[in-house]
Simulated scan of single mutants.
Amino acid sequence: ATLMSVPAGRILVGLIGLVVLGYAVRQIYKGIKEKYNDEIDTRLTGAARWFARAGHIAKGIAIGIVGGLFVWAAITYDAEKAGGMDAALQTVRDQPFGMLLLIVLGVGIGCFGLWCFFYARHAKHA
């Protein structure tokens, strides 16, 4: 709300939303194209590969919802609509099949957590 009240605040909020959306798209792309393999010293196979892929895609979707809310708040000029992850998840919950979508997102974020454990053990070192 404070940022939206300054001159060019709507533009800044919209730009922040677009940057967040860009990061979300990058995470989804990373999951689809398996670019996460570039960050580790081995190639993923089996369940680890599935966890990494699903995790990156779910993380991208969740972050994309947040970015979309920021852009929407800038367009409608309503600072109350720009929320964090909690507002994004409440927005998803209020949709048809929202609880199912939240369960799928939750499982995906859990998969990302498993990927993080694998990454911690096999990260490439400079």
Results as ranks from 00 to 15, higher is better:
Thr2Pro: 14
Met4Trp: 03
Ser5His: 06
Val6Ile: 13
Ala8Tyr: 14
Gly14Glu: 06
Gly14Ser: 05
Gly14Arg: 07
Leu18Ile: 01
Val19Trp: 10
Val20Ser: 02
Gly22Ala: 08
Ala24Gly: 06
Val25Asp: 01
Arg26Asp: 15
Gln27Pro: 09
Gln27Asp: 10
Lys30Ile: 11
Lys30Val: 13
Gly31Met: 02
Glu34Met: 05
Lys35Asn: 08
Asn37Val: 11
Asn37Trp: 07
Glu39His: 13
Asp41Lys: 03
Arg43Asn: 10
Leu44Val: 04
Thr45His: 12
Thr45Tyr: 13
Gly46Met: 02
Ala47Gln: 13
Ala47Lys: 14
Ala52Glu: 00
Ala54Val: 06
Ile57Pro: 00
Gly60Tyr: 01
Ile61Gly: 04
Ile61Tyr: 09
Ala62Phe: 06
Gly64Ala: 00
Ile65Leu: 11
Val66Gln: 08
Gly67Ser: 04
Leu69Tyr: 05
Ala73Gln: 08
Asp78Phe: 09
Glu80Lys: 15
Lys81Asn: 08
Asp86Tyr: 12
Ala87Arg: 07
Ala87Cys: 06
Leu89Pro: 08
Leu89Val: 04
Gln90Asp: 11
Thr91Tyr: 15
Arg93Cys: 11
Asp94Ala: 15
Asp94Leu: 14
Gln95Phe: 05
Pro96Trp: 05
Pro96Glu: 12
Pro96Met: 04
Phe97Ala: 06
Gly98His: 02
Gly98Val: 06
Met99Asn: 10
Leu100Phe: 11
Leu100Ser: 10
Leu102Ala: 01
Val104Ala: 07
Val104His: 08
Leu105Val: 00
Gly106Leu: 03
Gly108Lys: 03
Gly108Asn: 02
Cys111Leu: 01
Phe112Ala: 00
Cys116Tyr: 12
Cys116Asp: 15
Tyr119Phe: 06
Arg121Glu: 15
His122Gln: 06
His122Met: 01
Lys124Tyr: 08
Lys124Phe: 09
